[in-house]
Design a protein around this nucleic acid. Structure first.
Lengths: 144, 144
DNA sequence: ATAAGTGCAAATTGTTTGCAATTTT
DNA sequence: AAAATTGCAAACAATTTGCACTTAT
């Protein structure tokens, strides 16, 4: 049994074609931070038979199951990302749309200190940085 | 001429009743982080004549003009907050719902460094910390 | 007077839901 | 065969837009 199937099984979800296809779609590196609509379009483009509603439903189930993480970027729509055990934050280039993942121990630590100062134990947080390419060339180093 | 009127003038916006009313609404301390719909409802409740579309339009203009800041909390809808010259982030207590504003120079600096490393000049960012009261008493010091 | 702003209703956009038909177990 | 899942269309919620009318300058 493949990894995908195991992940679905473990989440109590039946192993269906749409779910497998969506899971595969999310595994493509360039498809990180993809919207439901885009998952749908790409699947249609590659000839799959699937409904938009199914994509939304499956993505929600995946979110509930912890298989994906939902992000609320600016622009109204949600984007999804395959959940990974290592926490990271996001830096979004407003020029090319590229999403760069990063994590910074100093920031993480400060966050906990600030919360503690207010008698709060952090359960989670979201940090998004938005900016423009310094030279308009969008050479972010690890950009595609 | 009042402060409000000046703010509008400076933004190149005509001083109209709806705009003044909305601005006043945003100045009420308890109305920080309010949604367009709620601004509308409160104005209607207090007997003003205004359309929901106008509220949305004005809030967008205020956002463009830097008079308010738009936040994308989880749940789909945007909430607005009167922009203050002093930037701050948000710490949300999941037990009592209290929103604590804070700002941390160390975090701010790190953010810029990280962006710079990726050839990006930060235009803005959003940082939300979510946590639970350490003792369940929700005495956050500056809590109301 | 003229350009900007408003209200209303209709249009969009992103997402969810009811239900009959179809799969997975 | 039973229970879960799907596709489609209709339903929704948040927000935007076209347009005739009104208001600030």
């Amino acid at each position: 049994m493949t990894d995908e199937n195991l992940a679905l099984k473990k989440a109590g979800l039946k192993v269906t074609l749409p779910r497998i296809k969506i899971l595969e779609m999310l595994q493509v590196p360039t498809n990180q931070h993809i919207s439901a609509e885009d998952v749908y379009k790409k699947l249609i483009d590659q000839g799959e038979e699937i409904g938009l509603a199914t994509v939304y439903r499956v993505l929600n189930q995946f979110d509930d199951a912890g298989i994906v993480t939902r992000h609320h970027f600016e622009g109204g729509k949600s984007v999804f990302e395959l959940a990974s055990q290592d926490h990271h934050d996001h830096l979004v280039c407003l020029d090319c749309g590229k999403v760069i993942e990063f994590s910074d121990d100093v920031i993480e630590q400060r966050q906990h200190e600030i919360a503690k100062k207010h008698n709060i134990t952090l359960t989670n947080h979201s940090l998004y940085l938005y900016g423009r390419s310094v030279d308009g060339q969008c050479d972010h180093g690890d950009c595609d």
